[in-house]
Design a protein around this nucleic acid. Structure first.
Lengths: 226, 226
DNA sequence: CTGACATGTCACAGTTTCATGACACGGAAC
DNA sequence: GTTCCGTGTCATGAAACTGTGACATGTCAG
């Protein structure tokens, strides 16, 4: 299941808690704030994947937050409001929001709308695979673990991608040498082992008990998600 | 104002006519059909920009039409229905629809939702994009940083546009050589690097720590906003 | 338990890759 | 012709990457 970093802005604590709980239950990772100012700060540093903004906020209102977000980038935005006035909807959407949802909203419906928007926002660019905490973006050539980006060197990345291309299958050293390295290497070196170890050191929480890259003694290595 | 080729599918002639008129008034170019079968034929040949599907249709219903569209391509879809059941909404969105609108709908609201979806669906092809301080106008072929126009040479501009066309994606040198230059160049030249440096010198506040064009060692370059 | 063998670990130097700035060349503008 | 601009190439140095081998540790069979 996809896990999205969702930014929630809602000033009413009880609604905020309820929504946060509901979204978390649906598998999203949520960070919430009570004001637009805090949210705008958050966006720069934390790069959420989608923002849900209540329209009625103290200080900067949701529509204005949306406008300011749009001035910065393409972050998908859902406006949330108690008022379902036609004019409000039009104004909200013209401010750059992707959707406009009227409270109270059934969690399943909100979730479905979130997914529809993320699907659209990401279909253009992303080519990701997720294994638990591990996210591998083959288009951006980025790997992250529990939301934290991890730097892999070119060879490490090629090795990981090759393993991931055959989840659950054991790949032997000779094969890996041929595919990941150029076939000009001797077969009996510790090269593959060393590289696997380097990848493990970066993506395994406990490298001694690997959860992703497993050693199959006598044969090679196998990638299989936890 | 944008003019979209909209495909409308609605079996009730009076509703169909009314919607067609309303959308046309908003500046859209509309083609309408009474059944899903006709619509699916239309899509293959006429390549509309967005489809609005009534859910209750004779023959194949709107949700199924939506599923079949999704199997073909990314065409944005709005489902339109008299029933606003939560379950219907979830099912509709999970079928791949981008939005789910309950009739009767105010034309201005429908128009705003259409525009919101087109904006998202076409943000990759729209004329003007903003990434923080950087504004790229693909129509006018102008680039500006913090409001100040920046002069890029033709090659530099083609390179930047190519990178921006795939935000977040790593593009390798061979690809860039083929697309930005004509493929008649040797693969191992530092030409791409040099051009990237030149673009960076113009659009990056601190070229040593780029915020837009990132080097991905061993692979190529990636454009991603700060 | 012990030996044989497979795999993990580590440090480091040679190599590769890239940023940077200088420069040469050709064409367009004047 | 001269000047200016755009573009491709190159040298240089810095930084990052990676293969290697020695050694440690783990695992299995007898």
């Amino acid at each position: 299941m996809r896990v999205a970093g969702i930014l929630l802005v809602e000033d009413d604590p009880s609604v905020r808690t309820a929504l946060e709980l509901a979204l978390t239950r649906q598998g999203h990772s949520v960070t919430s704030y009570a004001t637009g100012e805090e949210a705008l700060d958050h966006i720069r540093s934390r790069r959420p994947e989608l923002a849900i903004l209540d329209v009625m906020l103290p200080g900067i209102d949701g529509v204005e937050v949306c406008r300011r977000i749009r001035r910065l980038d393409q972050l998908p935005v859902i406006l949330l409001t108690a008022r379902g006035d036609d004019l409000d909807v039009v104004v909200g959407l013209e401010a750059g929001a992707d959707d406009y949802v009227v409270k109270p909203v059934e969690p399943r419906v909100l979730d479905a709308r979130i997914r529809a928007i993320l699907r659209r926002a990401e279909s253009a660019t992303s080519d990701r695979i997720t294994f638990g905490d591990l996210v591998i973006d083959r288009g951006a050539l980025k790997v992250s673990l529990a939301g934290k980006e991890i730097h892999l060197t070119p060879t490490e990345l090629r090795l990981l991608l090759e393993l991931v291309r055959h989840p659950g299958q054991v790949l032997n050293r000779r094969y890996l040498l041929r595919v990941v390295w150029d076939h000009t290497h001797v077969a009996d070196s510790r090269l593959v082992d060393a590289c696997v170890q380097r990848v493990r050191a970066k993506i395994e929480p406990r490298p001694a008990e690997p959860t992703f890259i497993h050693t199959v003694r006598g044969f090679g290595y196998r990638f299989s998600p936890p």
